[in-house]
């Protein structure tokens, strides 16, 4: 509960259960929806059980972390369309470096890959801040660049992963129905994000995304903060890349659908595209919800492709609903 609340609301000290509920209504709504979807799956397909839950934990891992990366940048008022490419690059680097190496070396690789992620994010951020080109254009262009480097590192899927890393992404922990991947993800995200969120930097992210002028007047170093948000985004993208390698055991140089789906997850997860609002937990849950929608539709023998349609419709529907609320509030 406490992890939930801090993750979802930038690590404020807890101020009573009711307040937590009020602040994170969207997140709890998503959790409720997820529960309904899981229940539904169990009813329609009685064989839906622990194995499926574990599989779910593993399959959503890369996208969930990608969604966190995107959330950090979007909260700070930007958008990063190069997340998928950064994941591909970090993933192939990890898979190539770990291939046929002892497990201990894998730890060195992980540290190196995280540093790489920081560096990639630093480049993105520096370009956004110094060129004053809109975020969307810079990161779109950089998505080409990082994907290109990924292909240079490894022209075709392959490589390997340290066994301990792969082990982190599969199977249960403690009890059968707790996927280890999910626990690992929550711990990793918490370890990285909560200190940031509790620091001045995290506050500055929200301030910058919420109102750049007010942030400037409050003494937030605008350029540096924006840059830092991309650096943190890069770090999470690297974690996402490691998750890809861990869950597949190889590195794939072609970026998956993670960039655009991370944007979708962020919006579904209650982060305002205008910046300043939301947390990182909502987007993670949104990823699971989207995956469960697909699963449930499969169980109902609905064409899986309609699940893609449903994903789009949900995305549009949620955003339309959100902007209708905004319009109504503005006209009042």
């Amino acid at each position: 509960m406490s992890t939930t609340a801090t993750l979802a609301s930038r690590g404020r000290s807890l101020v009573g259960r009711r307040d937590v509920l009020r602040r994170n209504g969207w997140t709890f709504g998503l959790l409720g929806l997820l529960a309904v979807l899981l229940l539904f799956a169990k009813i329609v397909e009685p064989s839906y059980g622990v194995l499926a839950i574990q599989g779910l934990g593993t399959s959503v891992l890369p996208l969930a972390i990608a969604a966190v990366a995107q959330a950090v940048v979007v909260i700070s008022g930007g958008i990063d369309l190069s997340i998928g490419s950064m994941m591909a690059l970090t993933s192939v680097v990890a898979a190539s470096a770990m291939y046929k190496q002892p497990d201990e070396f894998g730890i060195v690789v992980v540290i190196g890959v995280l540093a790489l992620g920081l560096a990639l994010g630093a480049v993105n951020g520096a370009l956004v801040v110094t060129t004053k080109v809109p975020d969307i254009v810079v990161t779109l262009a950089m998505s080409f660049v990082w994907a290109g480097f990924a292909l240079i590192v490894r022209p075709a899927p392959g490589g390997g992963a340290s066994s301990w890393l792969m082990d982190l992404a599969v199977g249960p922990i403690l009890v059968d129905w707790i996927p280890k991947a999910t626990v690992v993800m929550l711990i990793v995200v918490a370890v990285v994000w909560i200190p940031i969120a509790r620091s001045r930097l995290g506050l500055s992210f929200y301030a910058l995304g919420s109102n750049a002028l007010a942030a400037f007047r409050s003494g937030v170093p605008v350029g540096r903060t924006k840059w830092a948000s991309y650096v943190v985004g890069g770090l999470f993208a690297a974690l996402g890349g490691l998750a890809l390698t861990a869950s597949t055991g190889i590195g794939t140089p072609v970026p998956g659908p993670y960039t655009l789906e991370s944007v979708a997850a962020v919006v579904l997860g209650g982060v305002s595209l205008a910046g300043g609002r939301g947390g990182v937990l909502g987007p993670m849950i949104a990823v699971v919800v989207l995956q469960m929608v697909r699963t449930d539709m499969t169980f109902m023998s609905i064409d899986t492709n309609l699940a893609i349609v449903a994903q789009g419709v949900i995305l549009i529907g949620v955003v339309m609903f959100g902007s209708l609320l905004e319009i109504r509030r503005a006209s009042r």
């Binding site: 893609i308 549009i316 955003v319």
Partner: peptide, 14 residues
């Protein structure tokens, strides 16, 4: 960005 991204999913699925 969001609207056309969503439409992308819808059209692809259909």
């Amino acid at each position: 960005l969001i609207m056309t991204l969503g439409m992308n999913f819808v059209v692809l699925g259909l």
